[in-house]
């Protein structure tokens, strides 16, 4: 059986990822000072590389987002999924190291949030959703109804994403109070 993706779905995923990556990239540039601290805290890069990476990572995110939406090349899809999986890996390694009080740097500059397994799963789900873009898509005419469905889908995904993030953050702050 050949699994086909509907264009509405691929649009929701690619535009959703675009918004996510651009927002994350801009946020990292805006709060560069904090991001440098976070990156250093992860202890995965040599200290000399941290300042370079603190600019390179958000730039990669923004550039990948643009290419993903405008070109939709298979290679870019894999690259975005790899980037998301890389974050999951970085968090996972630090959880295994027992470095639980590490600030994940994922909360859009709002407050600090410790890392947890939930964040690893979240990133893996995002990477999985990205890989769905590799499936062949059905080409068909777009109607008004389809645009409605697309807007709805995007809004629901955004709401789910921010709510899940909030709940993960709540779980960690709850842990810290006790």
């Amino acid at each position: 059986m050949n699994i086909m993706m509907d264009t509405v779905l691929t649009h929701i995923i690619s535009i959703g990822l675009f918004v996510l990556l651009v927002a994350a990239g801009i946020d990292k540039i805006k709060h560069r000072q904090e991001f440098v601290q976070t990156l250093g805290g992860y202890r995965l890069l040599p200290a000399g590389l941290v300042p370079v990476a603190s600019v390179a990572i958000p730039m990669t995110e923004i550039v990948l987002a643009q290419v993903l939406v405008w070109l939709q090349a298979k290679l870019v899809v894999v690259a975005v999924a790899a980037l998301l999986a890389l974050y999951a890996g970085a968090i996972f390694i630090n959880i295994r190291r027992g470095n639980l009080s590490l600030d994940c740097g994922c909360q859009f500059g709002e407050a600090r949030q410790s890392i947890s397994m939930a964040l690893v799963y979240r990133n893996l789900v995002l990477a999985g959703a990205t890989l769905l873009l590799l499936l062949p898509t059905m080409d068909r005419q777009f109607g008004v109804y389809d645009y409605g469905a697309m807007v709805f889908g995007l809004l629901v995904c955004t709401l789910f994403y921010v709510t899940v993030n909030r709940l993960i953050a709540n779980a960690t702050t709850y842990r810290e109070i006790l």
Binding site: Q37, T38, G40, G41, R43, N99, S101, L102, D103, R112
Partner: peptide
């Protein structure tokens, strides 16, 4: 040495 708040 691993606590980010300490460094801030």
């Amino acid at each position: 040495s691993t606590c980010p708040v300490c460094k801030i």
